[in-house]
Nucleic acid binder design. Structure first.
Lengths: 231, 231, 231, 231
DNA sequence: CATGAATGAGGCTTCATTCAT
DNA sequence: TATGAATGAAGCCTCATTCAT
């Protein structure tokens, strides 16, 4: 019949004969997370457009069809990846315990965490760049993501208040602007490390360069937040 | 396309008759720059991977084969675009005349120029992001680009020196780090405006938001550069 | 670059080396009609769903991409085929010259033409069945097709009038109903020849059976059109 | 699906305890007929090629694997559907009791039944069209189906004889041809209602149109069967 | 200089079917 | 009896690139 698929043949025997603990154990949860991990890597490496569904399935060790079974489409998978990486960074951030130390140290912690997180999670940067190229089309469909960011701004606002009250920080700083600036100083450096490194003739991902940058960023934020000298 | 085509058979004859060997000496240049402009727009809009050669040719009003005739490949065209946008921004920067004003004002000019340039040239941001996704593979092949950046750093270094000497700036600031930071504060805000806007629930490209950001960046840089209070 | 295609290699030399008059002579019109012919055959053979674009391109001797270049999509190609077959049958019908003979003979001509056309153009039947399975979705988009059918009904109406006036036909016959009935008697027999042949144990496409059916249809229509006997 | 599933673990135990070896003796039958009903609807809606096994299982509220357990393949299921619909129409036909009324009325009943059955069972038409597209490949494998049609022709032959004897019908009519014609006049009208409706600009499935067609068909058959006027 | 015709090589997605429990 | 997990084999469509004129 023309419009129907032909039947298959072999392969199951071969699979059964493999070694030990059965490679694909019909564990739905494991398959799902393998796909998500593979997709994160692939999307981070090549962007949404450049990523290949074939490659994601291969990396995950599953059939392409299973990927569609679980996630529906390449784009839906991309959104799932975005939600996952956002949840991860915000989750780690939430454990910083900024409330229990003095404002200057708390701020230093936040700056350090942010910079180091970007260094250690380059996928975060490429994924967000890809999403921005697409004008946040996917993220806008997500309800989970916005909820993740309210607490972050709340904590920064509180930290600023404490610092002002203690005479450690200048007054009048918008917490959203500040957070964006803190992120900027690390994000842009890393996101654009290849072009900046090329035009300035430096390897910005070298260990010493990274450390120098981290200190510069710390000093930059600290310097800005210094209170105005009294009259 | 209609506007760039001449009527069927008459024009070429007229052309050939004009003045000897130079055949249509202007049209070649015009086609070339039309392609470049179209490519800039298309690459900026969709990234390198997402851009379509068909679409570039269509926007330029020329045949696809002509595009290949002039540029050889999509990637070579992309590099030509990158070189062009770098040349443009560095050229504009060079006209800032930072040397003829006091250091604080010169710095303010530089910060303002950088921020406004990014706002007014969104293509610059997307193109660089695309090139970074590809690990600056194209730019590394370019000899012209590195040469463009030497003067920039030199001028910033000189400006810092003048400022320190005048007691207006803190000492010990690396001009490369500073330039990267100045760029960061605008670039990241704009490059990630879609995702940031989504997660923070603000339209970061609104006129008022842009102005607020510009002032924040100015203050951020100024605050950081303040000299340490004397003992 | 991940998101771009790799370059090709050979093949053109092989093509040039082939025999005589260059198989693909860059003749747009010829390619178009080859595709249309191949598509007609393939759609007729397997239906819209069962037809394979690959197979159509193969039958037409062109690349699949060219097919998309000319027709846009499988469905648009299907509509082009439908329009072509409708135009063909209505065109042939228009040449019947029903006006110049006596009504009974004219009617006989029309019935004969219709039956024979279906016999000789089995693709017409399968294509229409396919389109009906899809609820005429494609045809509804066509503006050309409706215009083709106005004249047909007009001519049948006129023929009926002439026949009634001459005392040869009964009065009060709706030309649309009549046309549908004439078509029915051949169409259904042929469209369902496989199942009818199976359940009745007869080969309905055998020459003798076809001839018997044709005569039956002629007699059926003639019998129905006989005027009521006077009181 | 929810309504066909029992609560998690309790039900099976209760079942097993019921009365020895018969485990859930009714559910098997119920699943089977649910699948058949779902398949009938899906095949009728989309044709054999367009129907989706997933969708059939979903409509039936069972797992796809169960469908394969019962029917073996999509094609075998299609044949089961065909056999079922043939059995249904022939069964209904058998109850017409044509023998107990005068020939003209009996014929009218047959024509009416046939027309109305097609109107009320559109699935019958699409299923047969699909099977004919596939050249009756499935039906040919069925032994049950041919047996269903012998009686039908026998009864029509008998009816014709009675009618001729009574002077109500013309002589020399082949019962198979007549049956095919009766079916034609309704089947084609309905099978091709979408394309005919489109090209003639009428909604042939509107109630009034259907009634007009039914009367036309009645009159068409009656008119044809009128005896020739005596000399 | 310029073009329309043509194509090979994928890319995303779907689907009938089987496996392990 | 019944299921959720898994897959090989296409199917439609796109795209960078080349050819012939």
């Amino acid at each position: 019949m023309p419009s129907t698929r032909r039947s298959k043949a072999s392969a199951p025997a071969a699979r059964r004969a493999r070694k030990g603990p059965a490679r694909r154990p019909r564990d739905a949860e494991r398959s799902r997370s393998a796909i998500l991990a593979a997709a994160t890597a692939e999307f981070a490496d090549k962007g949404l457009g450049g990523a290949r569904v074939d490659e994601i399935a291969r990396r995950a060790g599953v059939n392409k069809a299973l990927l569609y079974h679980y996630f529906g489409s390449k784009q839906a998978l991309f959104l799932a990846v975005l939600e996952a990486v956002y949840a991860t960074i915000r989750g780690a951030e939430a454990e910083l315990d900024l409330e229990s130390v003095e404002p200057p140290e708390a701020m230093e912690r936040l700056v350090d965490f942010t910079f180091r997180y970007f260094v250690e999670h380059p996928e975060f940067i490429t994924l967000l760049n890809s999403e921005n190229l697409h004008r946040a089309r996917h993220l806008k469909r997500s309800k989970r993501v916005r909820a993740l960011h309210h607490p972050l701004i709340g904590r920064i606002a509180e930290l600023l208040q404490r610092g002002v009250a203690a005479g450690a920080f200048r007054a009048g700083v918008d917490p959203v602007q500040l957070y964006i600036s803190i992120a900027s100083l690390g994000y842009f450096y890393l996101s654009n490390a290849h072009t900046l490194g090329t035009v300035f003739g430096r390897n910005l991902r070298a260990r010493a360069e990274l450390e120098a940058r981290r200190l510069h960023v710390q000093e930059f934020v600290r310097g800005y937040l210094r209170p105005e000298p009294g009259p």
